[in-house]
Design a protein around this nucleic acid. Structure first.
Lengths: 342, 342
DNA sequence: TTGAAAGCGCTAACAT
DNA sequence: ATGTTAGCGCTTTCAA
């Protein structure tokens, strides 16, 4: 079509198409939306015409009119850990599952990576009029902000804990204390008596994991609390930092609880460099159960969070909230995946 | 504010705010946009009022009016490999860098994961009127479609090769043949004489890498072409498949070129299970240089693609195209990162 | 410097 | 079953 060199003016609007079809814009709108109140014949004719001219209605206009955007905002707030990059495997895995699910349900996904220095970072997002709902991956240290906004903006669900009394925003998360306990118990069962915890406890979920490990140690009658050692998230720094930490506590520990599989994997790497055998001389337990845990040498024993299920729960809760229903917070139980590292 | 229990009706529109300020909507619009043609005093007064009522203009309306969306679409087409999940580390790393850069430049990022079964999947996206430009991560087997759309839709840049004669869409990629050659040369230098290539050559970039490896082998005077072995992308399947492959060619090969670091890492895992020492008995070279390559045991020798730079080049090219300028395709040279696995 | 008014392109009453 | 009309909330001429 349009091979004559005299291009017909491009069909850009419903009005254009209506003129071409000899009907009114309203009819075209109905026909394209597949509504029942149009004569099947006109509907087909209009749809054919639309295809022929590869016409697609302007979404911006449609969304302004219907006040329904078909977009879900997925926001990653980077609080205390500004250096953290979006490519963190946990975020990415979560994001992947969210994208899968939202796409299936016909929603688009708008991604924002925000460093919450402006006090109204979340307001800016929810009040932009650009999305039907917002999903937060991680609450970081922004629970106050999140609660404030959630008080008046319902379709908001966050990944993270829901232990706040009277909490109004929907939260989906796993029980990090229980997860930490699982890790601690495993280390004890493997004969560890003195363990180090690798992770930055300024993040509340990491703090919970640490507490869980400590509880397990105490329950086993070990008087010492775990040695907590910070780890930066950036991968190049992480290895050096972990190496420095481990050299410092060399000989004093026989077990390591890592706050994530990424940390665990880097730890294995550092231990291998030092000729320390895992798990014989040092038991290592990870957290998350990302695919890399399975490909590491040795395979990483880890506390599994069901990220796919988490993503699905988040989306389901959000949809319920968009529909005006209530959606309770959900806390999932972590499980221990026993492999070879500890 | 609004603590009296009689909430003032929420200020939702510019008209609301105008009424409150005793000016016209036009003036509010100008004031909020910080335009110069408003009296500084009225401007400040209006801005203060907006802050007080935490008013934020509706983006949908603004964008419809200005015909500028501030949104860049990032699209991952999953062609021949439908099972591939968005959480593929390469995609995710790329996405992370793109998000960083786009956020910096004040754009929002709309993510679509499409399975291109409908012939007009890309048209649907670019004609939605929802974005100012589109970035494609990977061309999959959709070059035809991409070219067709790019012919009339300029702001389109894809990650991938640009070897098509007369290619009209902008492409940013690395030279996969050269990369494959690098891998092959390294294996030869390490004493490998008979190598296997692990990767699915139906993807054009993987095919190029295979060809590069083959070229290197030939240049070294080795008559045998590499044995090509398919690998599924799903992580659980991948390990079993690789194990089966390697058992089948056991004893016949002394080097492995992996199409990605993920494949390389899984390969190391399988070799460790079989007690095959790397690199002494088997040299392994990866591709991409993802963070995991550095944490693997042993550290993976790999062909590095500068993903961060790639992301930046893509965005820069896209912005130039949005501005109506021309942006040539760019091909980056891969480099060899020598580590321990091969 | 500000106001009035005309749309951006679409949809949904309402009317026919 | 289809047409007419009035907006969605904003920006931007044009006029004052």
């Amino acid at each position: 079509m349009e091979q004559n060199g005299y291009d017909a003016p491009r069909v850009r609007t419903i009005a254009d198409l209506a003129r071409l079809a000899g009907v009114s814009p309203g009819t075209v709108s109905r026909a394209l939306a597949g509504k029942t109140l149009v004569n099947p014949e006109t509907r087909d004719r209009i749809q054919a015409l639309a295809t022929e001219h590869s016409f697609r209605p302007n979404q911006m206009a449609s969304r302004l009119r219907t006040q329904r955007t078909g977009v879900i905002g997925v926001v990653v707030p980077l609080g205390h850990e500004r250096r953290q990059h979006l490519s963190d495997p946990f975020f990415m895995t979560m994001l992947g599952f969210l994208a899968d699910r939202l796409t299936e349900d016909g929603y688009d996904l708008m991604l924002s990576r925000v460093i919450p220095d402006a006090a109204d970072w979340l307001e800016r997002i929810v009040d932009s009029g650009m999305m039907d709902g917002v999903l937060l991956i991680g609450q970081s240290d922004q629970i106050g902000t999140i609660e404030r906004v959630a008080r008046r903006y319902r379709p908001l669900v966050a990944w993270g804990s829901s232990n706040l009394p009277g909490q109004v925003h929907g939260a989906v998360g796993s029980d990090n204390v229980a997860g930490g306990r699982l890790a601690g118990e495993r280390l004890v069962a493997r004969g560890a008596r003195r363990v180090a915890f690798l992770g930055d406890v300024r993040a509340p979920e990491i703090r919970d994991r640490f507490d869980g490990v400590a509880q397990a140690m105490a329950a086993a009658g070990l008087s010492q609390t775990p040695i907590q050692l910070d780890t930066p998230l950036a991968s190049d720094l992480m290895e050096r930092q972990i190496a420095a930490h481990l050299d410092q506590v060399a000989g004093q520990i026989d077990g390591i609880a890592a706050a994530s599989d990424v940390i665990a994997m880097t730890t294995l790497r550092v231990l291998a460099d030092r000729g320390i055998r895992v798990p014989d001389q040092m038991a290592v337990v990870g957290y998350d159960d990302l695919p890399i845990a399975l490909s590491a040498v040795p395979r990483i024993t880890t506390v599994r969070q069901d990220i796919r299920r988490g993503a699905n729960e988040m989306v389901s809760a959000l949809f319920r909230r968009i529909a005006g229903e209530d959606a309770p917070s959900v806390t999932m139980a972590p499980t221990l995946v026993e492999r070879d590292s500890g």
